[in-house]
């Protein structure tokens, strides 16, 4: 995996209307290769960030680049590098899956129809079926197949798992990881379901309301974060944030190298890491000033 950043954001801020800030000055560099999870609560700005990379949103301040190209200056070149799965993918009601693939070929002549078809075939989704009659999971798979068929080196997936059942989520992630590993692509997957991305992703970006709270590899995040229960001693300056545990107890996320961890601390799961950071950066949505 290369460490060269392929998706970058520099002081990126995005405001909707006069007062609602979706992003409040983000600096982020996602390296090439592997799958990066972009995790955060609703209204954290995940979709806005991804749409800015696709060129759908114009930054209010700062800029973004995809493989060094600013999508606001050269959207066409960026789109040539990107495969995109939108949030709650909507397909054309009147078209069959095959028609969608044909449409993709028309719009992008280099679209690999056979490859996309093979992916769908593996999932047992018949190409002749009308899009209207597909389940939510199947629609998401078709949207992913359309993105994969572009053979783009960067995949941007905007909460494709949100409305899927656990089995469909697992299948989706399986297809995604398989494709990314075999093609050496880079994927950015936004989600608020941490348990699912834990198995599939290499890196983790936690986005609070409009700002980056954590950016690390999944393995490092797991290796350096610990949980302290109520009353346990936490090293000075290491506490990240506190949140309620499953039985109502107060838990505090602590960042500490494994070598200096005391006996009161236990390893945090990825979900607990995310919860700790979200608790630390809790801001009322819309009030975050740039």
């Amino acid at each position: 995996m290369s460490t060269e950043p392929i998706l970058e954001a520099h002081d990126l801020a995005k405001r909707y209307g006069r007062r609602t800030w979706a992003l409040t000055g983000i600096d982020l560099a996602i390296p090439q290769g592997g799958i990066t999870a972009l995790v955060g609560p609703n209204a954290a700005g995940k979709s806005t960030l991804i749409k800015t990379w696709v060129g759908f949103e114009r930054p209010t301040r700062g800029n973004v680049t995809v493989a060094g190209i600013d999508p606001q200056k050269d959207r066409s070149s960026v789109l040539g590098l990107v495969g995109y799965v939108p949030q709650s993918p909507s397909l054309y009601d009147g078209l069959s899956i095959e028609d969608h693939l044909d449409l993709a070929v028309l719009l992008r002549p280099e679209f690999d129809r056979a490859y996309a078809l093979r992916r769908l075939d593996q999932l047992g989704i018949p190409a002749g079926q009308g899009a209207k009659s597909l389940s939510g999971g199947q629609q998401a798979q078709v949207a992913l197949a359309l993105a994969l068929g572009t053979r783009a080196s960067i995949l941007l997936l905007d909460e494709p798992l949100a409305s899927l059942d656990p089995l469909a989520r697992r299948e989706f992630l399986h297809v995604l990881t398989d494709a990314v590993r075999s093609e050496g692509a880079t994927a950015l997957l936004s989600s608020h379901i941490v348990t699912d991305v834990e198995q599939a992703c290499d890196r983790l970006v936690v986005l609070g309301v409009g700002k980056i709270l954590l950016h690390d590899t999944v393995s490092d995040a797991l290796a350096t974060h610990w949980l302290a229960t109520e009353g346990a001693a936490t090293p000075a300056g290491a506490a990240i944030g506190s949140f309620g545990g499953p039985s109502g107890e107060r838990l505090t996320l602590v960042r500490q190298p494994a070598s200096s961890v005391g006996p009161d601390l236990r390893p945090a799961s990825l979900e607990e890491v995310v919860l700790g950071y979200l608790a630390s950066g809790r801001v009322v949505p819309g009030e975050a000033a740039a």
């Binding site: 789109l79 990107v82 995109y84 939108p86 709650s88 909507s90 054309y92 449409l103 992008r108 949207a143």
Partner: peptide, 14 residues
């Protein structure tokens, strides 16, 4: 309105 523009406008380079 049907939210298909997201797919269509990224599949096509321009």
């Amino acid at each position: 309105e049907g939210r298909t523009a997201g797919i269509a406008w990224t599949l096509s380079r321009s």
